[in-house]
Each structure stands twice: as structure tokens, then as C-alpha cells.
């Protein structure tokens, strides 16, 4: 039996919204420690890794490991019916063919209950970690989203060049070029506005703008995003949850 109660429905809403446009369905692997998902987008360029640790939940129990195959579009529709501030409880029996979803309004005496039909999903798991990292950038997630949107008007690719004291985001396209430089900054009054760059080795990598557009749909999950870059390796874009994370591993592009 799995039972997990979120303090606010908004958290699961944000997680599903961040994933559903690149992955149509995925397995939720539930253990006593929490819920994890690994899924690859249809073009197999972007890998999503989600961990919702037990401590994220107001209440959590999982007596036996179970795998729940979930259509994210369908889950999104059902979750959309609840208010952001509702308690949201998901539950499933050990051999369940459906996921039970309950919203509880915190003010009104109102409980809404839904069942989502589960899917049988046959998916390979990839071994992603741990990876070496040459450069790590942490910046406000909204700033990163704006950079990706702004650069996308120019080109299908975004080049990220990291040196000791700066990160350069550059796009070169038919209509022209653009570049945005960010430097480390410590903001004591507003720590969420700080930018950090740590570097073992300079980095010059290019990523598909289309996939970055999918990644930044996670912006509302966390005020900060951490980008880990390694030469000739997938970039890791991490949004922290209250306890856990949503990570995107994006394969870089190369000159032909």
C-alpha cells in the first residue's frame, strides 16, 4: 500500500507541469524512502530524473516497493481539478490498476476523489551517475528561463561558455547574434538572487534551444537552478524540491 499526502496540491501540479510536455507517460517507482521517476523524452535527447523524498510529504507510507505507470497528460488533467492550497493525497494498493487521488479543501468541508487508470510501461533505466563536473553555475531560475527564451529567438542552439569568472550564453543565427554574460554575485539580503560559478576546467558546450524550453517549465519549482557542465557530456539542470529534486540531463550538440 502506498499513501502520500502533500501539504499543498501545488507541488505535484508544478512537478507534472514541468514534465508532461517532454514525457507523455512514465513509471513512478515508490519505495519506503519516497517516489522516483526516470524518463526520457520522445526524441531521446533529454532525460528527466525526479526524486520526491519521503520528507516532502506531510504523511507518507509505502509498505512494499511498487511501480505505478502514469500518463502525465491524464494526471495533469485530474490534478488541475484541485485547488493549489488543497491537501493532495495519492494512494494505491500493492497490485493496483488505478491511482487514487484525493483533494481536501482546507477551509470548506469538501473532499474530491478521483481514480486515474494506470498504464503498463516498459522502459529501460539508464545509469546516470555519479558524474564528474567541470563547471557548476547556480543562478536564479527565473533569470535562466529568461536567458533561454531570449536566446531562442535567434537560434536553435544555445552555446554556454564558462570561464573562471563568468558564464557566457551565446546564440548565433540567421537574423543575428546575441550574448548574455553573468558573473558571480553574493546578495546577502536576497540570497535567492545570488549567482555562483565554480570551475575546474573551462567549458564550451552547445544545447538545443527546444529542449531548454522544456527544461525551464520547471522554473516555478525552485527559485534557483544549478547547472552542472562537463566537457562532451550531458548538461545537468537541477531544480531542488523541499526534499528531493527534479533534474534534466540534456545531451549536448556537436559540430558535424
Amino acid at each position: 500500500m502506498l499513501e502520500g499526502k502533500f501539504e499543498e496540491a501545488s507541488l505535484l501540479k508544478k512537478i507534472v507541469e514541468a514534465m508532461k510536455d517532454c514525457v507523455s507517460s512514465c513509471n513512478f517507482n515508490c519505495t519506503e524512502n519516497g517516489i522516483s521517476v526516470q524518463a526520457v523524452d520522445n526524441s531521446r535527447v533529454l532525460l528527466i530524473s525526479l526524486l520526491i523524498e519521503k520528507d516532502t510529504f506531510e504523511e507518507y507510507r509505502c509498505d512494499r516497493n511498487i511501480t505505478l505507470g502514469v500518463g502525465l497528460g491524464s494526471l495533469s488533467k485530474i490534478i488541475g481539478n484541485g485547488a493549489n492550497s488543497d491537501y493532495l493525497t495519492i494512494s494505491a494498493d500493492d497490485d493496483a490498476d488505478k491511482l487514487n487521488i484525493i483533494f481536501e479543501d482546507k477551509v470548506k468541508d469538501k473532499i474530491s476523489e478521483y481514480n486515474l487508470k494506470l498504464l503498463d510501461i516498459d522502459a529501460d533505466l539508464l545509469d546516470v551517475g555519479p558524474m564528474d563536473t567541470d563547471a557548476t553555475i547556480t543562478l536564479p531560475s527565473a533569470d535562466f528561463a529568461k536567458i533561454c527564451k531570449d536566446m531562442k529567438v535567434l537560434s536553435e542552439s544555445l552555446q554556454i561558455i564558462v570561464t573562471k569568472d563568468s558564464a557566457l550564453f551565446q546564440s548565433v543565427g540567421d537574423i543575428g547574434t546575441g550574448n548574455i554574460v553573468i558573473r558571480p554575485k553574493t546578495d546577502i539580503d536576497h540570497p535567492e538572487e545570488s549567482v555562483t560559478i565554480s570551475l575546474d576546467k573551462p567549458i564550451d558546450l552547445s544545447f538545443g534551444s527546444k529542449y531548454l524550453s522544456d527544461i525551464i517549465k520547471a522554473t516555478s519549482l525552485s527559485q534557483k537552478v544549478t547547472i552542472k557542465l562537463t566537457d562532451q557530456s550531458p548538461g545537468v539542470f537541477e531544480y531542488k524540491l523541499p526534499s528531493g529534486y527534479l533534474r534534466f540531463y540534456l545531451a549536448p550538440k556537436f559540430d558535424e
Binding site: V40, S43, R44, V45, L46, L47, D124, L125, L126, D127, V128, S157, S206, G208, S233, P234, Y249, L250, A251, P252, K253, F254, D255, E256
Partner: peptide, 13 residues
């Protein structure tokens, strides 16, 4: 530019 897939970097478990 060429776009490799993620399977080019990670092995199956």
C-alpha cells in the same frame, strides 16, 4: 550541429 541522443552517454542499467 549534430544532436546525439542521451543513450550515447549513459548505459542501460
Amino acid at each position: 550541429m549534430a544532436q546525439p541522443t542521451i543513450s550515447n552517454f549513459f548505459k542501460r542499467k
